[in-house]
Design a protein around this nucleic acid. Structure first.
Lengths: 238, 238
DNA sequence: TTGCCCCTGTGATTGGCGTCACCAGAGGTG
DNA sequence: CACCTCTGGTGACGCCAATCACAGGGGCAA
């Protein structure tokens, strides 16, 4: 199998490493085998679009490698990024299950591989393997939860600085679950960060300046270091 | 059966009028009967709290009569109303399915009746009647969709007037799906409207004034009349 | 090397909306 | 009837973030 965009290709769901931890994990051998048969694999370059908000859903994408951003836009061109997806995530599940158009667009942020399962195949699969349907329901309700997190952030958090601090903290806990100065690669542009917290590019730039001055964070090249987590938590507030 | 708060009591899911149109409708006779056995009925006054955000879920509530508002609050006391529920809606489903705390609080806005199904009973019921699990998944994905509507409103809509116009239009289409001057009872306080669109009471008050002056709407007592729907649609915008 | 384009930093300006303050009316209760 | 609480209307003020504008820098290709 050729490897475009410098990627290694995973071609068997039964042995895929991410398989253990996610939606379609620990299935019966039968089910897993069936799943392996109805999926098809493709590799996408950076910037590739998996699907666009408003389209009728063709199927779901199981992200194997790479990262994708999910976003929704208004007709005036304002965009918000609602989620950054990583390997193991299932994209487009809600649209397929509810027979409605995709509610977001999905775009690859770095090259990666995704398995595709068509709408029909998936629904048939869920009928055949009823055990999995409840798992899907659980996944949907988890998605719903993260959507509510988003609602709380957008609706209850007034100031950009608070949202920014919140975002930094979420990155921080993901990078260094323990404690201490978390350190991570910053792959997003200011523009993208602005689309996550719902503000403008300029404001994000100013927030970085201000937080640097206040010793809350530090930038070494593209490496972001969280210097004062408690202070950030205080900004996020009670 | 006594009828507190001036309500008629519905005591049999098998013959309940709302049953036909909603989540647990058109079940097999067996399933419906089983459902009828595991539910318990209660009647609530205006202002009663069905559950509070953050609580471990005890079960789901099937709203038979009355209206309820779902809301989430920050610790500083800011509140947003995320949904107004009506007869037939199922409250608390996500929390039960995902084994997580309630993501919202539910409060009765007018007296009403609700059937309660405990977490354990519901999960067992879904295992016993696998057909229903997929229906639950569909319901969850519908909930997810409305959550996304909310995200789009909060994140992409900048001005209060735009959100206000959006809200008026949604009421309008519900009250008079056809066309023409929709007319409806306004049961919410300005404060509550503010919590829906994420602004302050004063701003809502000013919006009413302004929209009245611009002939977009009219108030006769507590009756709201939409006078110029196209103009509202223009505010909501492309 | 020289462009060019995208990303970043930062100043100046401005206007919208949150906040505070106060009053008026409605409805319920003793 | 008087009182009180809840709701609605409106003015004044001030802040903060969106907007506009422009300059500097880094990466990439020709």
């Amino acid at each position: 199998m050729r490897a475009p965009y410098g990627l290694n290709i995973l071609d068997n769901c039964l042995t895929c490493a991410v398989r253990e931890e996610h939606l379609f994990c620990n299935l019966s051998v039968q089910a897993a085998q069936h799943l392996n048969e109805i999926k098809s694999t493709a590799v996408y370059p950076k910037g590739a679009t998996l699907f666009i908000e408003g389209q009728q859903p063709r199927g779901v994408f199981l992200l194997c490698t790479g990262k994708a951003k999910l976003s929704t836009s208004s007709r005036e061109g304002k965009t918000i990024i609602t989620k950054l997806s990583e390997a193991g995530d299932v994209l487009g599940l809600n649209a397929v299950i509810s027979h409605r158009p995709y509610e977001v667009s999905a775009e690859m942020m770095e090259p990666g591989q995704a398995n595709f399962i068509s709408r029909e195949s998936l629904l048939q699969f869920l009928k055949d393997y009823g055990e999995v349907a409840l798992r899907v329901a659980e996944q949907l309700s988890r998605n719903y939860y993260t959507a509510y997190e988003e609602i709380r952030t957008l609706g209850l958090t007034t100031s950009p600085s608070e949202k920014f601090a919140k975002l930094l903290l979420s990155w921080s806990t993901k990078a260094a679950p323990g404690e201490g100065a978390a350190q991570m690669k910053l792959t997003l542009t200011h523009e993208e960060i602005a689309e996550i917290i719902g503000t403008t590019r300029e404001t994000v730039s100013r927030l970085f300046s201000e937080f640097k001055k206040r010793q809350l964070l530090q930038l070494k090249g593209s490496t972001l270091v969280i210097r004062n987590r408690p202070a950030l938590e205080k900004i996020v507030q009670s």
